[in-house]
């Protein structure tokens, strides 16, 4: 077994490196602090150790070692629950909450990243054992690149065209383009809304996109991301100052109304465009039509 020490150590190193590279404080704004990061690096270490050790065990025909991986699977399902619970608790105190769909998306991402770590450490250990260190390093780089590709989801700018529109009042009704947003009764509040408010129209590029942006979770994610990037003119006790996204029932366009502290049109369009398309919000009605004639499966 001594001959496996370096491959296993190398596999663990590559797995942890891969986890650290995937652990960016990015648009999700989480985890932001050291303690949150330590938890995920520690779990990444466990994942990479399991992945690395499985390889020599299998080579030595210790097939029961595969049960290790089932332990890992249940462990990482727990990670998903942990993330979900933490974010759901924190969400109650956000001025503009993330919403459950976004939280579930983040929780899934955290679980799946651990599986990518197992894959990385397993492949690199296997390649090192079968060949040598140099080819092992090449395999590790390829695995890390693959992890990055698998980790990146779609962006909203791929499925919608974004356009800035000045919000306006018709009577007491607030509108963005021709989309009704809400009724604001007090003139003082209306003035604030016009002063700080910004409106955007998201025009779906195809029929699938129309269903995706209709999802309430996806719309809440857009509002949360803009708030995170540009701030929000809002506080507890001012419920009328609320960012909202409403849908035009005729053509599926979505009118987004936000109250950013930094009123920068270009930046806001950029932020909306970079909002992730949530896995749980994606709908593909056109795929169904294509597969309908395929008979019974």
């Amino acid at each position: 077994m001594d001959s496996y020490v370096y491959p296993v150590l190398f596999g663990i190193f590559c797995g942890v490196t891969s986890r650290m590279l995937m652990l960016r404080t990015d648009y999700r704004q989480y985890p932001t602090y050291l303690h949150g990061k330590i938890i995920h690096i520690a779990l990444g270490f466990i994942a990479s150790a399991l992945g690395s050790i499985a390889v020599p065990a299998l080579i030595e025909q210790e097939y029961t070692a595969i049960t290790f991986l089932t332990v890992a699977a249940s462990q990482f399902r727990e990670v998903r629950n942990m993330e979900r619970n933490t974010l759901a608790q924190l969400d109650q105190y956000e001025l503009v909450p993330r919403g459950n769909t976004y939280i579930e998306g983040i929780a899934i991402a955290f679980e799946s990243r651990n599986y990518l770590v197992i894959l990385t450490s397993m492949v690199t250990t296997l390649v090192y054992v079968l060949t040598n260190l140099i080819i092992g390093i090449i395999a590790a780089v390829l695995c890390i690149l693959l992890s990055r590709v698998l980790m990146d989801g779609g962006k909203l700018k791929d499925i919608v065209d974004i356009e800035y529109v000045e919000p306006y009042f018709k009577g007491e009704g607030l509108y963005v383009d021709n989309i009704y947003i809400m009724n604001i009764g007090l003139p003082a509040r209306q003035e604030e809304v016009l002063k700080y408010g910004m409106g955007f129209i998201l025009k779906p590029k195809n029929f699938n996109a129309r269903s995706t942006i209709a999802n309430l979770g996806q719309r809440q994610a857009i509002l949360h991301d803009i708030t995170t990037a540009l701030g929000v003119y809002r506080d507890s006790g001012t419920p009328a100052l609320v960012p909202l996204a409403k849908r035009d029932l005729d053509d599926g366009r979505v009118g987004v109304f936000v109250l950013p502290q930094e009123k920068d049109k270009e930046k806001a369009i950029n932020v909306i465009g970079n909002t992730p398309t949530l896995e749980n919000a994606i709908r593909m009605p056109t795929k169904r039509k294509k597969n309908e004639g395929g008979g019974n499966n």
Partner: peptide, 13 residues
């Protein structure tokens, strides 16, 4: 305006 702040509700006309 006062009720809006006190009750944490939105005034609709």
């Amino acid at each position: 305006a006062n009720l809006e702040a006190i009750l944490d509700g939105i005034a609709h006309k």
